[in-house]
């Protein structure tokens, strides 16, 4: 699907960080991995705090969450939300992940998943990301799936 103007030009002007290193961590086969989702769609539990500022903060989404538990308070008006309204898996594929665990395509689903609001500056997310790393390792996660919006 070709992206339409003026969105294409807008995105082209967004700051895009570069990195001098290329970190690469190996692990077991996919069928043995424990997978967590990190979304940047600005989704969170209905009872949690909305995303109000581009501060790089995150929200926790426990694996028991269902479609009706999550809402989206992302700042941007420039992406489609109707897909999420029809089916949360088009943004946050937790049901699909559970199915992959059931048929042993992956090892297991993490207890906790996380959400950022992607409009935040990448540098703002760095501190939170490093904190998340400890939480994910504590949850025995060895496969993180990052899903944009």
């Amino acid at each position: 699907m070709d992206m339409q103007e003026p969105m294409r030009s807008h995105l082209a002007t967004l700051p895009c960080p570069t990195f001098t290193s290329s970190p690469w961590v190996s692990g077991p086969p996919l069928s043995q991995r424990r997978v967590a989702i990190i979304s940047t769609a600005g989704i969170h539990r209905r009872s949690d705090r909305p995303f109000e500022a581009m501060a790089g903060d995150y929200r926790v989404i426990p694996k028991e969450c269902t479609a009706g538990d999550l809402v989206m308070t992302h700042l941007s008006t420039n992406f489609d939300r109707t897909g999420f309204q029809q089916d949360w898996n088009v943004v946050f594929p937790l049901d699909r992940l559970r199915e992959l665990a059931s048929n042993s395509s992956i090892g297991s689903v993490a207890d906790y998943h996380y959400s950022f609001m992607g409009a935040a500056e990448p540098a703002e997310m760095e501190e939170a990301a490093r904190k998340l790393a400890g939480l994910l390792i504590g949850d025995h996660v060895d496969a993180v799936l990052l899903v944009p919006v």
Partner: peptide, 17 residues
């Protein structure tokens, strides 16, 4: 960028772009 930060902390990542 999140992938870089997490992988640097020892966590394997994959992403949709």
């Amino acid at each position: 960028a999140l992938a870089h930060y997490l992988e640097a902390e020892g966590l394997p990542t994959t992403q949709i772009s």
